[in-house]
């Protein structure tokens, strides 16, 4: 007797291997998200304190978290950018509140930091091949995370902030070349600017968006340089985060009179 399709047993529906364990990884996969969480939380706590701390200037040093100082009422004359303070007496809040959103936005939307905090804070995923705890996921395809696409605008702002930090460092070098604070500010300005230049948006803008490199040799060379920096973007992001925090704290300690030695 011929067997018909209706007689034959239905093929078993294929499904994934039913494995209950969240992960079968045996290494210390939890270290990266844990360390990320601790470091970033420490940075956020410090930044919050620094914004509201008024000891941001000890001539000629300017704390990076409060630079540029743009308000007449709260900025000593020496602390103003080219002596310029566009905001009058009416602004009496901490100067950092005015500008910190720009570098913070640059770091928040940075492709490296996104990886780090999606893993460390949102656990999406906590580590590769470790199940995330969320029942639904739309990633950066919808509001609010679709706003991550404005990263390049923060990059433009970060270039300006980087130049201002370089200005602060040069000013300190001219006025107090032997001061440790001068070299702390110089080191920080270099690292901040390297981090900014290593940005993926910068890489795209220099020439990444082109398809014919051979028609744009200058931009191609710039792209090659930025690509080399970009390979170290993660390292530069972390080192510059520590450097800006360290430089900021150093200036505040000098301003508070805690560091009083001759070459401070």
């Amino acid at each position: 007797m011929t067997q018909t399709a209706a007689d034959s047993p239905a093929p078993a529906r294929r499904q994934r291997a039913q494995i209950k364990e969240r992960t079968l990884r045996t290494d210390q996969w939890w270290r990266y998200p844990l360390v990320t969480f601790i470091i970033f939380t420490a940075f956020l706590v410090y930044a919050t304190w620094a914004i509201f701390d008024n000891s941001f200037f000890a001539a000629p040093y300017h704390a990076p978290f409060a630079s540029p100082c743009l308000a007449e009422a709260v900025c000593p004359e020496d602390a103003r950018l080219f002596g310029w303070a566009p905001l009058g007496d009416w602004y009496t809040w901490p100067p950092g509140l005015l500008i910190l959103g720009l570098p913070a936005g640059f770091r928040f939307t940075c492709y490296y930091y996104r990886k780090a905090y999606y893993r460390g804070f949102w656990l999406s995923p906590p580590a590769c091949a470790v199940n995330e705890p969320h029942s639904k996921y739309t990633g950066e395809s919808r509001f609010p995370l679709i706003l991550q696409n404005i990263h390049r605008y923060f990059f433009y702002a970060a270039i300006v902030i980087g130049l201002i930090l370089a200005y602060d460092a040069v000013k300190a070098l001219i006025e107090k070349p032997g001061g440790i604070g001068t070299w702390v500010l110089i080191g920080n300005a270099i690292l901040i600017n390297l981090y900014t230049l290593s940005c993926h948006s910068c890489r795209h803008i220099t020439a990444g968006r082109l398809n014919h490199f051979s028609k744009h040799p200058v931009r191609y060379r710039a792209w090659g340089f930025v690509s080399k920096l970009n390979a170290k973007h993660q390292e530069l992001a972390l080192i510059s985060m520590f450097s800006v925090m360290g430089a900021d704290l150093y200036v505040r300690l000098v301003a508070k009179g805690i560091l009083t030695f001759t070459f401070a």
């Binding site: 996104r114 990886k115 893993r119 995923p125 590769c128 996921y137 739309t138 990633g139 395809s141």
Partner: peptide, 15 residues
């Protein structure tokens, strides 16, 4: 093709 779903956590690169 859902590029916006990618949140660049780099596991693809790692493996």
């Amino acid at each position: 093709h859902g590029l916006g779903y990618c949140n660049i956590t780099k596991c693809c690169t790692e493996v």
